[in-house]
Design a binder for these strands. Structure first.
Lengths: 367, 367
DNA sequence: GTGAAAGCGCTAACAT
DNA sequence: ATGTTAGCGCTTTCAC
């Protein structure tokens, strides 16, 4: 067991997960008495290069030499020094992760999916959350490239203005993958949700339930998904012969509070409407509170549909009908594509659009 | 071998050795036109060392030389190579961040706070979310130390069993700071919330509103905060002359669903109770749904108090009375302490306990 | 199959 | 104030 734990080179039996469990009492030596490849070589009676070959699982090592070296590695609890490896090999196995907001369900889902995926391939993420401030991105980018991340994953909402910015980065040779930025004709790798269709599905659901005056609470203007979902809304309305009423539309910023306020704004106009499509679940839940405060019952008086299907949607009052988007998968796929871009020199940028799913719960009833 | 590396879309668990091989067939284009310190030195007509001094802001450079070098650096858009710097200086300015769960509000708050803080000092985080699986920690730790993170921040729930594990790590010379793990007498740096007092405040609030039969939905057993909040519950009950009834306590796992189910379990016992203390807001919201389904009105029939004050608490139905804990500050403080531990050789471990705050909303009324 | 030599890009200690 | 001399720990030729 002890041998296995440390023996990175053993290719056949040890998975990453197995390799390190059950050795929590191992001493991880850091600055003080750091064991080097030279000490391993000396103790094994071979040259440094042979140890290096064993470490990298090269074929050209005699089986018995390999075994002996592995034993010494285990014995000494030798840890290869990633920095030195990186300097010599130009490989860091480190990726940059840039995200807007760790408090947004969609983004954390992407991050979680991506992280799980890259771990399978032995990569790590350097973190760079921009805290909703896209202006910080160039600085992070620089710090990230200084550390020679081998690629960068953008887990955040796209906006049209990013295009040039990202293209520049890509042209400088850093593989990038971005989420939330599907545009036909872009030439970097994108994984996105089909937001147009999602917005259409949501609106269609309301139409199918007999609603004709459908209010909408949108995301912020800068977000591409806002435009897409709005487009879907229009696309559903048109064939039903419903003319969209701009008076019934208010803009939010994805937060509960903004949904609450947007709903109030619409209510204040005293215009008739029987249903609301909110561009995310949080705003839908905020809107429900505003509706309740205005004496409207949901869903008896007003039906509402959200977007995201975050966990709390199911436990809202009433349980929220919504559009599910599988952001975890977006993260996984994005990560896989990024690694592919890095490791396969022939790989070229591709665009991917994942479909949504209507989740019927009780916030939406027949008029 | 090559086939494996390229066949990325298939989600296999690769072995460590496999993960680390396959270097020569990948071309990292961003290295191509990489400018080195030598080129800067040559163009500026000084030695490499002088450039290094300028880069590191050393005082012993003539002002005009410094200026000239800086000009060339800008002109060439030279980016120092962090790996080489790290190798030579033994400093990486990189910290490890280990967290359980990016989908938990408290943890993401910690992460956000910590990230903002370390950025001020020019550090970066390497990410290692363990996805609720603490067994993975040793593996991450190893990969992190291989990359020579200068310290590790544990942003996650503590459990007693961690103690040895963390001590070992610290003894090996890696500065660590952990959250959610306040224990008197531990000798590593801890930033935690006063959960005993928080639990007491929550329970006291219910008592003050005239409640005597107070049910409780706890967090999972492994979490230290569960025990602390439970202790606070008892400490509030005792002086009020109320004997805790174990029948009124059910265990959850922090999720909405578990709160819903725990509430059902308690309701099934048909025991009288007029109030519920849930160990977090999510479970409180789940519990409200169960209560509603059972025909109980909140707060008219049953009062409920949560814990966390996550954003949705305010928009729940009814708006949730809860205990606010400032996790963002926990993150900031933890990060600052970690950097202190790294940069100040005389720094010693310290323990910090932040206080909570009762947030009154409408889920809790006088009996 | 193994080892020797030569760096990767930078910083550090000591010169001057 | 600036340059010289040595590495940091590892990988990568290219010998043998």
């Amino acid at each position: 067991m002890l041998a296995l734990t440390v023996a990175l080179p053993i290719a056949v039996t040890v998975t990453i997960a197995e390799a390190f469990t059950g050795k929590s009492n191992s001493i991880i030596s850091m600055n003080a008495k750091h064991i080097t490849i030279g000490q391993v070589a000396e103790k094994a009676g071979v040259s440094i290069q042979t140890v290096s070959r064993v470490l990298n699982n090269r074929p050209d090592v005699a089986p018995e030499t390999r075994q002996r070296v592995q034993l010494i590695i285990a014995e000494l609890d030798y840890q290869p020094y990633a920095l030195a490896r990186g300097l010599a090999s130009r490989r860091t196995r480190t990726l940059g992760l840039i995200t807007f907001d760790f408090n947004d369900y969609s983004f954390t889902q992407i991050v979680t999916g991506a992280e799980n995926e890259i771990r399978k391939y032995g990569y790590f993420f350097m973190l760079g959350s921009t805290n909703c401030n896209p202006k910080d991105e160039p600085e992070y980018l620089r710090l990230l490239t200084e550390r020679h991340v081998e690629g960068i994953l953008f887990a955040r909402a796209g906006s049209e203005s990013d295009k040039e910015h990202l293209l520049n980065l890509q042209n400088s040779g850093v593989p990038i993958v971005t989420t939330g930025f599907y545009l036909p004709g872009v030439d970097f790798t994108v994984v996105d949700i089909n937001n147009v269709d999602g917005g259409k599905k949501a609106t269609q659901c309301l139409i199918d339930h007999g609603h004709k005056q459908i209010a909408m609470i949108t995301g912020p203007q800068y977000a591409k998904s806002t435009h897409d979902r709005t487009k879907g809304y229009r696309e559903a309305l048109r064939p039903a012969g419903i003319i969209p009423n701009p008076q019934l539309v208010a803009i939010g910023d994805w937060s509960y509070r903004s949904g609450y306020q947007a709903m109030k704004t619409i209510l204040d106009k005293q215009l008739p409407f029987s249903a609301v499509f909110a561009h995310n679940d949080r705003m839908a839940i905020g809107a429900i509170l505003a509706l309740r405060e205005a004496g409207k019952r949901v869903p008896q008086d007003i039906s509402i549909i959200g977007y995201d299907d975050m966990p709390e949607a199911e436990f809202a009052d009433p349980p929220l009908t919504t559009i599910r988007q599988r952001m975890y998968e977006v993260g996984e796929l994005a990560a896989r594509l990024l690694i592919q871009l890095i490791e396969d020199p022939t790989a070229t940028p591709t665009q991917h659009l994942l479909e949504t799913e209507l989740i019927m719960r009780s916030s939406c009833v027949r008029r």
